[in-house]
Simulated scan of single mutants.
Amino acid sequence: MVSTAAFLRRAFACAAFALVSAAHADLKVGIDLSSTGPAAVIGITSKNAIQMWPATIAGQKAQYIVLDDGTDPGKAVANIRKLIDEDHVDVIVGPNITPAALAALDPVAASQTPMITLIGSASVVEPQEGKRVWAFKMAQTDGAMADVMTRYMANHGVKTVAFIGFADSYGDSWLNEFKRFAELRHIRLVATERFNRNDASVTGQVLKLIAAKPDAVLVAGAGTPAALPQRTLVERGFKGPIYQTHGIATPEFIRLGGKEVEGTLFPTQPVVVARTLPADHPAKKAALAFVTAYEDKYGPGSVTQFAGDAAGVYPRLEDAVARALKKAQPGTVQFRVALREELEHAHELVVPNGVVNTSAKDHVGLDQRASVMGAIRGGKFVFISE
């Protein structure tokens, strides 16, 4: 197992770091984030973590070029085209949202530029063919999260579930994966509703969910918009357990949801519940090191899974860049091709949110060591055993 302790000490002790460093940096990293718009709570914490990256990658001077897509897939594609065509970056990091990442597949594949996304859905990397061979992903897949969630449901007597999810590819992916694992564990889906990220009310959908009399409700959303269905469920008198996805693990979700989100159950990754993880969890040391450094810089309780995902991009890049540099130099298509190939060869690489083992068929590389169950208790995210 590769230790990231040296990386963490070096990366998070850096006090002076510019998002865009010297104009003639050797290695160019183009970064597209949702720093504004509905997904800003995700993009801002990703950007915070990126600001903690060292100024070199595998000893190579790096230039980080960060653009905001405003949570707009069209703007994300425009940003990525600019980063590729005008800035001539060697790798893309981001986007934060699934629709943007899917739309970005065309420009990254056409230019042969590897992309390390920060989304939850596996749809950008599965199946590994065509344009998707240029995409990688930091966050655990929806399937792995649905697996741990439905296992917890089955262990706690849940037989029927009502679903309400985003009316986009994030909601689609979660609905499909949840159905697959729910069927495996004999959990019946009794109602399905959808909502938009910018909706002001979901009362109609919630009343239909409650009318189905489910044992539990699953809200498949991300960031603060996911609080709306839960608050409405509680206000309308639903008394059963409410599950959310790994997309809600931000302090803003707890602040916005207030007492209505207390008791929420959700699958997550090590960073979010680092302090309450079992001592023998393989990522606990790296997760705690990152959480401590991040909260020293940005304040107690400020860390998110999305920050952890962005932090993990750096060791993924350092690991792959070190080998790619033996084949070609940055700024060339040969280097981009070599970097894509080397990103497929991470082996037992510990990052804050898990342990990575990639291959030509697996561009995520995370196993169940990156999937745990969490809950909101006392206004905090905590680890819970299955």
Rank of each mutant, 00 (worst) to 15 (best):
G378T: 09
H246E: 08
A39Y: 15
D215Y: 03
L343K: 08
E295A: 04
T332D: 01
S302V: 02
A55H: 12
Y170S: 01
V125M: 00
L184E: 15
G312I: 02
G257I: 02
E177C: 03
M149P: 07
T304M: 13
A104L: 01
Y294M: 04
V313R: 12
R180F: 12
Q334C: 00
M52D: 10
A283W: 11
G37N: 08
K208C: 01
R255T: 14
V93P: 10
A16N: 12
A39G: 11
G365P: 12
D32L: 05
A110K: 15
D147Q: 15
G247V: 06
T276A: 10
Y243D: 02
G379D: 04
A18I: 00
V219L: 08
V382S: 11
R369E: 12
Q60H: 06
P38S: 02
R275S: 14
D309G: 00
V219Y: 12
A122M: 09
F163Q: 02
R9M: 06
G365Y: 12
D85H: 10
A18Q: 13
V148Q: 08
N357R: 14
L209F: 02
S201A: 13
Y298W: 06
D72W: 11
L118P: 06
M149E: 13
K297C: 05
K213W: 05
D147F: 14
D32C: 12
A55V: 11
V66G: 06
V273M: 05
P127D: 09
P352A: 03
Q368L: 14
D68Q: 08
I84H: 11
T245N: 01
Q112F: 02
P270M: 02
D90Y: 04
A144W: 07
P214I: 11
P225A: 10
V273K: 10
R231G: 14
Q244K: 12
L27E: 06
F12G: 09
G240W: 03
R275Y: 15
